[in-house]
């Protein structure tokens, strides 16, 4: 086919590679923002969370395009199996292998998030930690493999991504709030809550306001400076 010998697939591979790195760095930073409970006033915390989810979908799509064009293109011979299995590529054996490993990790994180409601939250979180490893390997892969990543704009992009991800990681691990970081200012969806709920639905409630119980707040069971401050 003409398309297989034309340079455009190869150009697509190079371009989507850089864009994918940018997108996953954005996903990483957004995930850190969610985990460290940023937001509440100007932007809702749930909005950052939704953005994290949506952007990760876009990033996965770009990653699939990046890999598909690499495999289909005949300019370099990586082979279909090297998409998943490391060290099976004839072209740039080790750098492409890093890409395979990063892809495997990202797929694991992706599938676990798709199955999130069927997994225990602890399992999902454990798998989700590997996104950091996948991203770090992807950065090295981008630097070692990328035809544009050794100079000029490409190098600048890779460096910016590496720095952003590194800072996000440090901030995520060391500036993590111990459990709840206080009340959010609520989303733009609603005004600040009145002490006494006064929505129209409340007129239907005939029961008087119930006293708070331990089960409501769950706060007395948790010491403020508990052991789970550090990631397990």
């Amino acid at each position: 086919m003409v398309a297989l010998t034309s340079p455009y697939l190869w150009y697509t591979t190079r371009a989507t590679g850089l864009v994918t790195l940018l997108l996953f760095t954005g996903v990483l930073v957004l995930g850190s923002l969610v985990a460290n409970r940023v937001g509440g006033a100007a932007v809702g915390r749930f909005e950052l969370s939704e953005l994290h989810r949506s952007l990760s979908m876009v990033a996965v799509i770009f990653l699939v395009i990046h890999i598909a064009t690499t495999v289909i293109d005949s300019f370099v011979s990586t082979g279909l199996i090297s998409v998943i299995v490391p060290l099976t590529s004839a072209y740039k054996r080790v750098p492409v292998a890093l890409g395979s490993v990063a892809f495997d990790l990202i797929v694991a994180v992706w599938i676990s998030s798709l199955l999130k409601t069927r997994l225990s939250n602890e399992t999902w979180r454990f798998i989700h930690w590997f996104s950091w490893l996948g991203w770090a390997i992807a950065v090295v892969h981008a630097f070692m493999t990328g035809s544009d990543a050794r100079s000029g704009v490409g190098l600048a992009l890779v460096l910016v991504c590496a720095l952003a991800g590194l800072l996000a990681g440090l901030w995520r691990f060391f500036a993590r709030p111990a459990r709840a970081a206080g009340r959010t200012a609520l989303s733009p969806l609603s005004p600040a809550p009145a002490p006494e709920p006064a929505s129209p639905r409340d007129s239907r409630r005939v029961t008087p306001p119930r006293e708070r119980t331990v089960a409501d707040t769950a706060f007395p069971r948790r010491p403020v400076d508990d052991q789970r401050r550090r990631p397990r």
Partner: peptide, 13 residues
């Protein structure tokens, strides 16, 4: 934030 009519937060969030 998502269900402001149903959920209120205590002072610890």
């Amino acid at each position: 934030e998502l269900a402001p009519d149903l959920v209120h937060l205590d002072e610890w969030g």
